[in-house]
């Protein structure tokens, strides 16, 4: 990737991380995760050490995808938010810029109303940065890695999948 693109990616990515950390702080959430629609974590804030992140990201994306299809079945365009309430912990999931999924895990220390308001604010802030990040992410990856990378990766694959 050309250096200016890489720098721009870094700047926007840091600004997204900062916004997520602010959201996490302001809502007293346990953690906030930004996930792409295919179920891969983009970045997170707060304490995620106790979460199985790949499974959480995959299920959040699947949850959202299934609910969107349900919306379609009843003639709705999309359900843009999902809320799962537990005894101790709850999850609020929302779709941002029609591109990524923002999941907030919180306890009774905060309220759904506050999470909802702060997520909306964060979504507005993230919109522009996400557009720029996705310009990079969605561009063709030719040149993203070189021959040395491929050779080394193939050797690793041979040994991992023996």
């Amino acid at each position: 990737m050309p250096m200016d693109k890489e720098e721009s990616f870094e700047i926007e990515f840091q600004s997204i991380k900062d916004s997520l950390e602010e959201l996490c702080r302001e809502t007293k959430a346990l953690s906030v995760l930004l996930i792409d629609k295919a179920g891969q974590l983009i970045t997170s804030a707060g304490n995620v050490s106790s979460i199985d992140i790949p499974s959480f990201a995959t299920l959040s994306a699947a949850d959202f995808a299934a609910t969107s299809t349900l919306a379609d079945l009843i003639g709705e365009r999309d359900f843009s938010t999902l809320f799962h309430q537990g005894v101790k912990k709850s999850i609020y999931i929302s779709l941002i810029s029609d591109k990524v999924i923002l999941a907030v895990i919180f306890t009774k220390e905060t309220t759904l109303g506050l999470v909802r308001i702060k997520v909306r604010k964060t979504a507005e802030k993230l919109g522009n940065s996400l557009e720029k990040i996705f310009d990079v992410l969605e561009s063709e990856y030719s040149g993203a890695v070189d021959d040395d990378f491929i050779n080394e990766a193939e050797t690793e694959l041979d040994s991992l999948f023996e």
Partner: peptide, 9 residues
């Protein structure tokens, strides 16, 4: 499409 995160490598 493979997701390449240049920030977290």
């Amino acid at each position: 499409m493979a997701l390449i995160n240049y920030s977290s490598k």
